[in-house]
């Protein structure tokens, strides 16, 4: 079992399991609370306490769980579980807290790309199964959004992997390989500009993945009354709430794993394993916070929702072109230097 996972030390294994199953969801919820607090402060409000997401979930768990008459019952009930399980699966394949991923040896970035689709797909299934016109409209919008952001995301990951594949014999799609060869160390000045453009693309894709303003067309409370989740209540709603939080955390961790896989402990020279682990874990949390602040909190406060026609255009045409410019710059960098 241990050899299969590629981790020899049982203590290390325990740390990773605790990290991905307990710490990641807890910090995901804390970050959601911090996000709400920061948005409120930027709007000149006081805002909810940062433990508000925990209170929301505790409250939702004691509410009645209604299944509407017109709904497809088994699908309506299964969708929240699929969403939560798929989001939790993501945490097994993405390196967290400066350690390797639990199943990182068996799955690469392409698998993560596919796994990222499943929670959204579960949201869509739940929306269609609830038979509410609002939820159906929301589900259709979510599908359009999903198809739109895949393309720029794929361009980013393929560019990274193809550049890293030139300097190493290991599978360049493995997140561990990407972590061992950070893109910033490989490229010259032109390539760094290209990589910055790719980071920008990935940050815009993160907003879409997390379904936040300005890409929250599928939820759009002011026009389609909460969209996908319009018929969900009680326990089912809390599962979706949690899945959404975990997925946002996983997506931001993916950005960190792809572009900022540095650990602090080798730089400052901490040799003791336990201390180094704690320092790296805290450093990871800071990295995640910075990316989350830039991609979700700041933009959510600064912008209004895009129209549904603009969202597809922005991802499929604009962001893909921007990502291609970044990848061409990295290519030119290879020829010049």
């Amino acid at each position: 079992m241990l050899n299969l996972l590629g981790i020899d030390n049982p203590l290390e294994l325990a740390v990773i399991i605790v990290g991905s199953f307990i710490l990641a969801p807890v910090f995901g919820m804390l970050y959601r609370g911090i996000d709400r607090k920061l948005v409120a402060r930027m709007q000149g409000r006081i805002g909810p306490p940062i433990i508000q997401p925990f209170r929301d979930i505790r409250k939702l768990l004691m509410k009645e769980n209604i299944i509407p008459d017109g709904a497809i019952q088994w699908l309506f009930t299964a969708a929240p579980f699929i969403a939560l399980i798929a989001s939790a699966l993501l945490l097994l394949y993405i390196p967290l807290f400066g350690r390797g991923a639990l199943l990182g040896g068996t799955g690469d970035a392409i698998l993560v790309l596919y796994l990222l689709i499943i929670p959204s797909l579960a949201f869509v299934l739940g929306g269609f199964a609830s038979s509410s016109p609002y939820a159906t409209v929301g589900a259709q919008r979510e599908m359009v959004l999903m198809m739109s952001y895949e393309f720029p995301l794929a361009v980013v990951i393929v560019t990274l992997a193809s550049r890293i594949g030139l300097v190493t014999n290991a599978n360049p799609f493995m997140l561990a390989t990407i972590a061992a060869n950070p893109i910033w160390n490989l490229v010259g000045p032109l390539g760094i500009v290209g990589a910055l453009i790719l980071v920008f693309t990935l940050i815009v894709v993160t907003i879409g993945e997390a379904a936040k303003v300005p890409f929250d067309i599928a939820e759009a409370e002011t026009e389609i009354a909460g969209g996908l989740l319009v018929e969900y209540s009680g326990r089912n709603l809390s599962l979706f709430y949690l899945a959404d939080i975990i997925k946002a955390f996983a997506m931001v961790s993916l950005v960190v794993a792809l572009f900022f896989p540095y650990n602090l402990s080798p730089l400052v020279g901490i040799g003791i394993p336990v201390l180094a682990g704690i320092v790296d874990g805290l450093f990871f949390l800071i990295k995640v916070f910075v990316v989350m602040f830039l991609s979700i909190t700041l933009i959510r406060t600064a912008m209004a929702r895009f129209k549904i026609s603009q969202v597809s255009y922005i991802y499929i045409i604009a962001m893909t072109l921007i990502a291609l410019v970044g990848s061409i710059l990295i290519g030119i960098d290879l020829l010049v230097f």
């Binding site: 409120a40 909810p48 306490p49 509410k63 009354a225 909460g226 989740l229 319009v230 969900y232 709603l237």
Partner: peptide
Amino acid sequence: TPRYDVERFGIRLVGTPRHAD
């Protein structure tokens, strides 16, 4: 609005009665 800001008490306006308390 910012002047009264009930979100500081955890009160949120939701778009559907299914989410409401």
